[in-house]
Design a protein around this nucleic acid. Structure first.
Lengths: 185, 185, 185, 185
DNA sequence: TATGAATGAGCATTCATTCAT
DNA sequence: TATGAATGAATGCTCATTCAT
């Protein structure tokens, strides 16, 4: 039965991602269960509160981003690494707006709940930022929080205004252009 | 008696703005009434549904922005007009995040509900954009929707991440820098 | 509308007393509302939690008992006062078993929640006890807690075993006989 | 394999007794299974409903009491037999309040469900009572139901008020004193 | 056969909206 | 007309019981 449980766990996560993205995190938990094709009880066996389901999704996303940030930093030169990461981040945000809806709604609690992961993300973005600044490909008057806010916000608004993937990449390009050092502008 | 009604109308709008900004649009309507110092019944006499109260606030905000866009376009030269408008828009967004939260939450419905106003806003931003492009102070590969999305999103993320007014102006500067024509970069 | 509200408040209390006594405190709150002829929302306006409804009933009962204890102590001689109080207490307990069910279920929390009232009751029973001991009509090796336990327990078991008012008085008589000083036995 | 089943049956009964006594009969059946170290499925194989588990415990207890009543009646003189039985009953009740909680909660159904056992218990207590009355060591105006109610109730209240074993014995002494024939008082 | 995952009816509570005063 | 009490559908969550492994 572990196979079944595993399958249900994934079905629930997938259903939650989809439905949160479609209808926002305010959807009844019953709808999530229904979409996943399981009973509410099953959902609650896997995720003891609505918040925990929600957290599980956010954590999976952030973890993915953290890994990618690290990966790009190792494999690419500083300017390209930051650029690739930002576009990646944006693509993910554009596809599934719920991560950022979650980031928003969690508000102040967010920082304490995901403190470790957020710190880690900041840390990796900071590493990317520093390399890029040192390589002269990034202005030195913005911090890693600024960079994250710019991308999150851009994608979030794009997601809600019905912009498609191409639109989002255009917006991200503007942000990236704005991040060039003054000398280059 | 009409004076009283007018006063109540304004008290309700003000209370709703404040409390939506503080606690989000999910606050019970009773809290709004209480903050306004009126009974729920009175609130419902002025705004027949929660959504309508919500709409009234958004409309007031958008109208204000539209007026300013027009004003700046008339009084300033193209580059300054767009710059001033964007900073203004950002300032307002930073101070009261609820407008954009509202914009988000209203989601797809938003466009149909506020179609006229949104069109008008787009129209004015488009006018600002065209003048600026013609004056060579704005890249020509972004449209008015892009500009609005960039500012809304940036401010929204800033608002939720606890950024202060200065942080927001820094973020907006990055966006504005990114909007410079390629020649200048 | 205060008249209506008052009426509803009383209807709810009465319904809760009846239904708790009939079916135990585990009955759904909806049943209480239905029995009272009001909506659940109304019930919750008057009593913000199930526990608070429950508390309101217990408090009303305990307050009545406290007043009576005081009254008897002032009006009757020591032996009669304790006797009258115990029979009174028993009568009330026999009629409405829910008070003691409540006393039971509240368990450890009970003492803290009703601390003031319980202390007051204990205080009054202690006063009755002391007068009676001094008058030589009560054995001196039981404390006020013992007396309360004896009466509560007796009535409680009687209530659950279907004993009628006469049966209960007979049981109370046994307890009262057992409380006589050794010299008299 | 039958040995295993037997062992599980007993582990479940023991766990249920303990946990019901500690936390009341409202504990989830999963907790009982967990405490017994078996899966819920296994528990349900042995006891098809929660009520049946509950019944099994009550039956075991009542059977034990019936046996003791009989034993005392044979071995001791009338006054001592009743006295010993009552103290025994009380001790058991004081140690494990759940029997009487069960007696309470089962309410009206109780009599029909355990009719045979209750009758048997009554019958044995009646035998003890008659011998004692005939021997002049028990007042003749109480019936066996009264006696049972007095002890059950006393212990029940004691259990819920945090009284210790010594307190209970003191309370039982009062009841026993109250059961003396009038001539002796 | 033992396990524990799955089920879903049921419960306490909230809140947008209506309506008696 | 303003008030706030009343309403009840809807929500998150629990737990007795069933069933696939």
């Amino acid at each position: 039965m572990r196979a079944d449980a595993q399958r249900n766990h994934e079905k629930i996560l997938a259903a939650a991602e989809e439905i949160f993205a479609l209808d926002g995190v305010a959807v009844p938990i019953d709808s999530v269960a229904e979409r996943a094709g399981v009973g509410v009880g099953t959902l609650y066996r896997h995720f003891p509160t609505k918040e925990s389901l929600y957290e599980a999704i956010v954590i999976a996303r952030l973890s993915g981003l953290v890994e990618r940030a690290d990966d790009y930093r190792r494999r690419l030169d500083p300017a390209d690494a930051l650029d690739a990461f930002l576009r990646d981040f944006a693509r993910q945000a554009a596809e599934k707006q719920d991560l950022f809806e979650a980031l928003d709604q969690a508000g102040i609690d967010f920082k304490s709940r995901f403190a470790g992961l957020v710190d880690e993300l900041n840390h990796h973005v900071e590493a990317l930022r520093l390399s890029a600044v040192n390589a002269g490909s990034l202005r030195d008057d913005v911090n890693s929080g600024d960079i994250i806010n710019l991308i999150i916000g851009t994608c979030h608004a794009a997601g809600h205004s019905g912009a498609d993937g191409e639109d989002v990449q255009r917006l991200v390009s503007v942000v990236i252009a704005g991040l060039q050092p003054l000398a280059r502008r």
